[in-house]
């Protein structure tokens, strides 16, 4: 059965470089009393099968909203105002509600930052786990309780027999995140979105959970969209990285290239801020200044108010016009006037 499914996939997707997910110029705005919050403002990215795509950026830059937009789970007053989200060649923004529910949890699943509050406190974890199977496969076959046990075993939960009948409050954060991952993996999705999956966990557990995600990727060949604000995690996990700033992507490159030679001044700042052994630095203090308000964006480059390079190179264009995403080096894209000639 699985083999059959795989050959089907190959038939449909002959070329490896045909992306699984292709987001183009996505814009998600929140229409609030204070004004329009442009949480996601022109994000484009692709995710290929089997690839771990890192998305990195400071808090509030729109990472989660990008993820929620892909699943079309943005709550009011938020709204996806424009863009295209092609998943397996089909635009999700044109899907019906029913098509979206059929897709969520089955083809694209997501795990969140706070695992404990992401589980329903009044239901046993086993029943929450089986719910995914019931939703997506329940009409075709009978869902067996033992499946929850084996799913828990797959994500490395000790004593899964006992754990299925636990309530979330009886588990640690790391354990709960494993349950969330098991839930996300239950239907063997093509894409797993992990939205800061380890931020709420302590360091040793972080490493275990990240290992688990990578192993599952290797085993099932699913694609992972890994959202984080931690450059260390990106370096360790991602094949390719998108750096976001104030609602838009500012740089994109293969992980090695990015860390070797970051182009965007913001990325350079982020990389410089990775804590060096024994020295604890606060990431946010390294790049001076604050993210601009997403309601009143500066007219030119969004990073201009904080950009040291702009001052150093005395660039006038920065505060006038927003730079474009250009391919500065092969497969290395950046949005910055340093690399874009004004005429082009």
């Amino acid at each position: 059965m699985a083999a059959l499914k795989d050959t089907n996939r190959q038939n449909k997707q002959p070329a490896d470089d045909q992306p699984l997910l292709e987001v183009t110029d996505l814009r998600t705005y929140f229409f609030t009393r204070e004004g329009t919050v442009k949480a996601v403002d022109g994000v484009s990215l692709t995710v290929k099968r089997g690839e771990i795509r890192g998305i990195v950026g400071e808090s509030g830059c729109g990472k989660s909203m990008t993820a929620m937009s892909i699943l079309r789970l943005v709550d009011k007053p938020g709204k996806i105002v424009s863009g295209e989200i092609l998943f397996k060649g089909k635009n999700l923004l044109e899907n019906s509600t029913r098509e979206m529910t059929a897709l969520r949890g089955k083809q694209i699943s997501i795990i969140f930052q706070e695992p404990k509050s992401s589980l329903n406190p009044v239901l046993k974890v086993g029943s929450q786990l089986l719910e995914v199977l019931r939703i997506h496969q329940g009409s075709k076959r009978k869902i067996n309780r033992d499946e929850a046990v084996s799913l828990l075993r797959d994500v490395g939960i000790p004593d899964p027999q006992m754990r299925v009948s636990n309530y979330p409050h009886e588990m640690s954060g790391g354990m709960a995140q494993r349950v969330m991952i098991a839930m996300g993996m239950a239907c063997e999705p093509d894409l797993l979105i992990a939205d800061e999956p380890t931020t709420a966990l302590d360091v040793t557990i972080q490493a275990q959970v990240l290992d688990l995600i990578r192993n599952l990727r290797d085993e099932y060949g699913m694609a992972v969209m890994l959202i984080t604000h931690n450059m260390g995690i990106v370096a360790e996990m991602a094949d390719i990285v998108t750096v976001m700033y104030a609602g838009t992507a500012v740089e994109e490159a293969r992980t090695d290239d990015l860390f070797e030679a970051p182009l965007h001044p913001y990325t350079q700042g982020l990389i410089a801020s990775i804590p060096v052994m024994g020295k604890v630095k606060d990431r946010l203090e390294v790049i001076p200044g604050m993210v601009p308000s997403l309601i009143d964006m500066p007219p030119g480059c969004r990073f201009a108010p904080r950009c040291v390079a702009r001052v150093k190179h005395q660039l006038q264009q920065c505060e006038v016009e927003e730079p474009h995403m250009i391919e500065a080096k092969p497969n290395h894209y950046v949005r910055c006037w340093l690399y874009e000639s004004e005429e082009s």
């Binding site: 789970l73 969520r104 699943s109 706070e114 509050s117 992401s118 329903n120 406190p121 939703i135 839930m183």
Partner: peptide, 12 residues
């Protein structure tokens, strides 16, 4: 709350 978001993300 968060677990409602989870339920939606499951496809419920």
């Amino acid at each position: 709350l968060n677990y409602i978001r989870t339920a939606r993300a499951k496809g419920a």
